[in-house]
Amino acid sequence: MGMDRRTFLKLGGALALGSLITPGSQLLLASQENKTGNESKTRWAMVVDLDKCSGCNKECEEICRDENNVPHYGNERYDAYWLRVADVKQHLPGVETRERHIPLMCQHCDNPPCVHVCPTKASFVRDDGITLIDEHRCIGCRYCVIACPYRARSLIFRKSDKWTNEEVPKMMIGVVTKCSFCAHRVDKGQDPACVEKCPYNGLIFGNMNDPNSEVAKIIATKNTKILRPEKHLGPKVFYKGL
């Protein structure tokens, strides 16, 4: 033994520091990639103009069900919802009662809790910001249903024969479903079905990262609100006139 205690400790310390260099530099590089990668890409977003929504016969709910084969059994316990219109009344002393109809759907968060809890990675965020479910991988554990603060997700409890739109797969029993921003239409360059067919044109869809798009202009100039901002999830559905 030609090494004294001091040299041994010095060498050990150097070795420990050296082993940290590679993973540390990789982490730094990865964080930089994420920062630069997110800016130029498309990020789909929706603006809901609540001043235009009259709550008609909740036609958008029906349009959505027909477009995406969402089953409707007429029983609250089993019904699946992609889009639902909530009727909200504001009672304040001295102020006229105000009624609002708020279309609620998946908010397509930047930081979605449903994706974090998914044990099979069936829920994921696509590069263009749409949160989707890979129904081939979903095992129906419903962690995501509990995790979502917007109650956007529902499980298909009963076998469904609804197949109004053959372009979209039929709903499979035992998997979780939710609004997909009509990804099959978006990929073809069309707007989601509810945006296109809303009788009052109360919904606007577009690319948030493109400053010339209608959506980006409204978000920049008008007073829009997001739901549950205290959760810091970065939802991409904006409500005007809430």
Binding site: R126, D127, D128, L132
Partner: peptide
């Protein structure tokens, strides 16, 4: 093709339809 279409939104020639 299924993997590409579902997870990346690239719908190409090898689809079932």
């Amino acid at each position: 093709e299924r993997e590409r279409a579902v997870r990346h939104g690239e719908r190409g020639d090898y689809s079932l339809s």
